[in-house]
């Protein structure tokens, strides 16, 4: 090719060992695609997963070396502790039992919660705010879930720390012995 007729759009740079050879009119692989924001799973993902496992194991082992699991007296059907408490994750339900007929707090409420949770994605279908923590587009959904969270955790805290003999309210530091 005659150098004098070459257009000046791509002037030859003497410092480079490569140059633009040709332009063709075809689609590139990147057209109408987002940037390729991916990394290979090995090693990027797998090493992080391995490190997390080690962290979990070390943390659990440390707790297990420091604190012993509770073991009370042998089960005795004729000696009822006052109050008898369910495991902590069911204490919210046990707390609600004391308000009305046990069916409402113990069976009805958790069933309704599970049904609402399972159906949520079939009604809340908007794609706005997906992939972002506390997206502003999802204020109402996040608010409703936060209320559920506060209630669930709050009831557990009340049941665990504020309920004493005869299921009466006590301050945690005034809690009478359960026997």
């Amino acid at each position: 090719m005659d150098k004098k007729e070459e257009p000046a759009i791509f002037p030859k740079n003497p410092n480079k060992t490569y140059g633009l050879m040709e332009l063709t009119k075809t689609k590139s692989f990147q057209i109408e695609k987002g940037p390729d924001n991916t990394v290979t799973s090995w090693p990027h993902l797998f090493f992080r997963e391995l490190i997390l496992f080690m962290g979990v194991f070390i943390a659990l082992m440390t707790i297990s070396l420091l604190f012993n699991a509770p073991l009370e007296q042998e089960a005795n059907p004729s000696n009822t502790p006052n109050p008898a408490k369910a495991p902590w994750y069911f204490l919210g339900l046990q707390e609600m039992l004391s308000w009305a007929h046990p069916f409402w707090g113990g069976i009805f409420a958790p069933t309704v919660v599970v049904i609402i949770l399972m159906l949520t994605p079939y009604f809340d279908r908007s794609q706005k705010g997906v992939g972002v923590w506390f997206a502003p587009e999802r204020k109402i959904a996040n608010l409703l879930f936060t209320i559920f969270l506060v209630l669930a955790v709050g009831l557990i805290v009340v049941g665990e720390f504020f309920r004493g003999p005869n299921w009466q309210i006590f301050w945690p530091w005034n809690m009478p012995s359960p026997h």
């Binding site: 089960a75 502790p81 008898a84 495991p87 046990q94 039992l97 069916f103 113990g106």
Partner: peptide, 22 residues
């Protein structure tokens, strides 16, 4: 499974709870 007082009475409570299903 540990069969201590904690275990026995917690399960008693949950069993009574299940017993309230209408």
């Amino acid at each position: 499974l540990p069969w201590d007082q904690l275990a026995f009475w917690a399960i008693t409570i949950v069993a009574n709870l299940i017993g309230t299903s209408p």
